[in-house]
Design a protein around this nucleic acid. Structure first.
Length: 320
DNA sequence: TCTGGTCGCTTCGGCAGACG
DNA sequence: CGTCTGCCGAAGCGACCAGA
């Protein structure tokens, strides 16, 4: 039995490959450090990566990178070899040029563009969906408490089929959590949620969850997040789970802080909130590739019905 | 060729009612 | 009283098509 072993370094490398590959595909001019980085990444064997992170390779840009590498360089070349092959003046290196050209050729095929286009389109759809959902909540509640938590499972070595078993567990726990959020008296009841299932190469399956509470009923976002997180950890998963409380992180560390208390007049914070929500709408290529019957990764509650607005009229009403 | 709209299919969320 | 089940409308997803 083999386990999926995933190290953080692998992920960083794969992310770097994807972003650089995108840059090359767009024929952007590359800085000297970018070129150095490409050479370093070319030294990584695809074989090793596919053992460490078997699913991630399904990112089309990563595929493009290795396809180009294999046409230009022997597939058996190790980093030292690559270092020797691409040395000297980087500005005028034939191998590097060939590599970029090959990658550009790969990414300019209609099939490649098609997959990118389709993914981008569903991404936009989900982003719009998030935005509409947030607007609908702000229309009903002048003040929202937004909570962000990441929910995950500790890996159980007894599971035989690592990927699908955990997926089934996750689906079951998610159903349970949703029910509890709606019905349980023990935890605070949110007015809405957005959820995104991801397959992390580092931590396995995890849910990024965003919860919306009525700001007139709840205040302390950090405590709300902790209560839900503890419930996930102890009740829902019966001790098999774990969580990360994003609201507990210092707001100053965020460039765009859009969680916690969000008021209807605070356009900037609403924008930040939507920005954070859009992250949940991003495509997870590794999950796409799993081809599980229900390969849905994005979830949200239904758009709330317009409530009759009572109380004091809103003074400034920029949004609605 | 790309973007945006729409449609059908499938799954999901929310609710109500049954069950133990 | 808490949990399970089934139903219905809502929502995600992929495919097609029209127009820029």
């Amino acid at each position: 039995m083999t386990y999926v072993y995933e190290s953080l370094d692998t992920i960083k490398d794969l992310d770097a490959i994807a972003t650089l590959s995108k840059k090359i595909a767009k024929v952007e001019s590359l800085s000297r450090s970018s070129k150095r980085e490409i050479i370093r990444l070319l030294g990584i064997s695809e074989e090793g990566l596919s053992i460490d992170a078997p699913l991630y390779g399904m990112n089309p840009y990563v595929e493009a990178f290795f396809s180009a590498k294999n046409t230009v360089i022997s597939p058996h070349a190790i980093d030292q070899d690559v270092g020797k092959l691409i040395s000297g003046d980087l500005g005028d290196n034939k191998l590097l040029k060939d590599f970029c050209q090959s990658l550009q050729k790969y990414t300019s095929t209609p099939e490649f563009k098609r997959t990118i286009r389709i993914n981008r389109k569903s991404e936009l759809k989900r982003e719009n969906s998030c935005s509409r959902y947030i607007d609908a909540h702000l229309e009903n509640y002048a003040r929202l408490i937004v909570v962000r938590i990441d929910l995950r499972l500790r890996i159980d070595p007894d599971k035989v089929n690592f990927l699908s078993d955990l997926f089934i567990d996750m689906a079951r726990f998610w159903r349970r959590l949703r029910r509890d959020l709606r019905e349980s008296e023990k935890i605070p009841k949110p007015e809405g949620f957005i959820g995104k299932l991801e397959h992390g190469h580092y931590r396995g399956y995890h849910f990024h969850v965003m919860l919306f509470f009525d700001g007139s009923k709840h205040q302390k976002d950090v405590i709300l997040a902790r209560m839900i997180g503890e419930h996930w950890k102890n009740e829902v998963t019966e001790g098999r789970g774990d969580y990360h409380n994003c609201n507990a992180t210092d707001p100053a560390k965020y460039k765009y802080y859009g969680i916690g208390r969000v008021e209807h007049w605070d356009i900037e914070k609403i924008e930040n909130l939507k920005f954070a929500a859009c992250y949940l709408a991003k495509t997870d290529y590794s999950l796409n590739s799993l081809n599980i019957s229900a390969n849905r990764t994005f979830f949200r509650g239904t758009i709330p019905k317009k409530k009759e607005r009572r109380g004091r009229k809103r003074k400034c009403n920029p949004v609605f």
